[in-house]
Amino acid sequence: MSANLKRSNQPIFWLLFGAGGMLSALLGPMLVFITGIAIPLGLIFSPETMSYSHMHAFAHHWIGAGFIWVIVSLFLWHAGHRIFHSLHDVGIHAGTLARIICYGIPLLATVLAARSLIPSLI
């Protein structure tokens, strides 16, 4: 064992992963049901619930915008971290490239989502 005591930066990614995991476990199935099954089939909600004007108004309120931003970014941070570590599990020894791809996509999506949501609030 080489005494490599360099502090790992994983806590940042692990916390984002944990937060995303919690959210996706609690809200993921419900969102799939509402957006993918219930609304298109007109179950419980009318098909109009997610019409363009409704969703536009939703994204223009700071709570709605915040919800969309958190869901998009944290779900992706969760997925990126899991994929990164799963690569290692299946024997692909993930290096810098895998790190850039797995954490870069969530970072990019977080920034892009914020950029497109913030103007709608101003």
Binding site: M1, N4, L5, K6, R7, S8, P11, S86, H88, D89
Partner: peptide
């Protein structure tokens, strides 16, 4: 905690 926090520490666990 130095061992826990290190790059070969606790976060290699999946």
């Amino acid at each position: 905690m130095e061992m826990v926090n290190a790059e070969d520490g606790v976060f290699d666990c999946t």
